[in-house]
Nucleic acid binder design. Structure first.
Lengths: 231, 231
DNA sequence: CGCGGCTTTGATGTTCATCAAGTAAAGTGG
DNA sequence: CCACTTTACTTGATGAACATCAAAGCCGCG
């Protein structure tokens, strides 16, 4: 008798609560067998724009950026996100190929499941399908509203926004190491690198933040909120 | 015997091919009984930001704009779209209330189905669920990529873009009546009204377009493409 | 230690919004 | 149907916001 059946690691994964909550234990077991984990070092590319989509991927740990290259070769950062927001989000059901690239901003671990397996699950398990649709919708909503928010702000408002984003959404701490270069921030909020730096310097001078290289300390978060809103 | 059973109008609707193609005739019949059509005059509001979502709505004919109001009271137009792109798209599965407003730019007809009915269908019919997810993903993808495209362009590029959008995507004709005011164009592409007008005047002067009030004729579509791309 | 990339700052010019003033067009009430 | 009011459109002038360019400092890495 096989008393010591190894428990599937997926059964305890936080991700289960999010989209796989409708799966019973045998299904989770099957998922586990169809799953692979892959590690990416900071800077490595997880999905490449134009590549064929064959897998359903989600971020288990780390931090990634979603971006695309414009016709004149510049990089446009669409969003920066933490685990449990899908990595291969969006296009996976609507397109054959990735519309955007994804790369690791910190060392990251990604879970990879064959897309066909997910599609099968989707077809035969309505609850799972609904959970997945809700999750995907929510991610899309977030990206769209974030993009609209940024668009509406001026230069200082945008920099304030991005600092608050790191403080509240990404690190949940008033002190953090910037995971991106000044240029990447510029590509994210749609302005020039020089002006991102200039604005950071202004904030430093007004003692709203302290800066030590890549390390940022938000001193006056309330003032930052005001600037971001008014922006 | 009931020989003269009235055929359900939904059975022949173009929309059936798009998301309801997986439904068999009895289900379509049921859909038909749960459906209402509602007409909206130009300018009327179809969905209101903040309102509770109870229905699944889609545009049968007409033209609508999706927009939101920013914190300082300005209007931000997210997209302008033709039938068969959902009206109550996006948030319907992820949010309880509408994130955005929708209003009619031309007289429009909207089909309205109770959201609960769609959810039931979704749960028990995997094919339908997959079709719907694909459709929703595609609409979201389109909005996101459009927004990114616009963001990356300068003033003239944006105006060229919007003219091409009306020419190719909306009217499929080089001559058309603008369904929106100059101000609405400005709110759509994120610039001031005065500069939209100025740019249109420049295009007129360079004989790229002809303008008679609301009527636009695109004379040199190639030049417009170049300006839009380079922008 | 020296090379290359990222960062910083100042000077300059372009792009764009804002303001103002005028004209055309579209409602509105008598 | 016309005078009146309001709203949309148009153009020029001005200044603010922002990008670009250039030069110098910093830092990590071979």
């Amino acid at each position: 008798m096989n008393e010591k059946k190894k428990p599937c690691v997926c059964a305890n994964c936080d991700f289960r609560d999010i989209v796989f909550s409708y799966l019973d234990d045998p299904s989770i077991e099957e998922l586990c067998n169809n799953k692979e984990e892959q590690s990416f070092r900071k800077g490595e590319i997880i999905n490449h724009e134009g590549e064929k989509i064959t897998n359903f991927k989600y971020l288990k740990s780390g931090l990634v950026k979603l971006y695309r290259r414009t016709s004149n070769g510049e990089e446009q950062v669409i969003t920066i996100t933490r685990p449990f927001e899908f990595v291969s989000n969006m296009s996976i059901f609507s397109e054959e190929r990735y519309q955007y690239s994804v790369s690791a901003l910190e060392d990251s671990v990604v879970c990879i499941v064959k897309l066909d397996f997910i599609k099968e699950l989707f077809l035969k398990n309505g609850g799972f399908a609904m959970g997945l649709l809700t999750k995907i919708s929510r991610i899309n909503d977030k990206i769209i509203s974030q993009t609209l928010d940024i668009r509406q702000k001026n230069l200082v408002g945008r920099v304030a926004f991005v600092l608050l984003y790191f403080t509240k959404e990404i690190y949940n701490s008033r002190v953090f190491d910037l995971p991106v270069s000044r240029k990447e921030i510029a590509d994210y909020i749609g302005m020039s690198t020089a002006n991102v730096i200039r604005t950071l310097s202004d904030f430093k001078r007004e003692e709203i933040i302290r800066v030590f290289g890549k390390t940022i300390e938000v001193v006056d978060i309330d003032k930052l909120e005001i600037i971001s809103k008014r922006g």
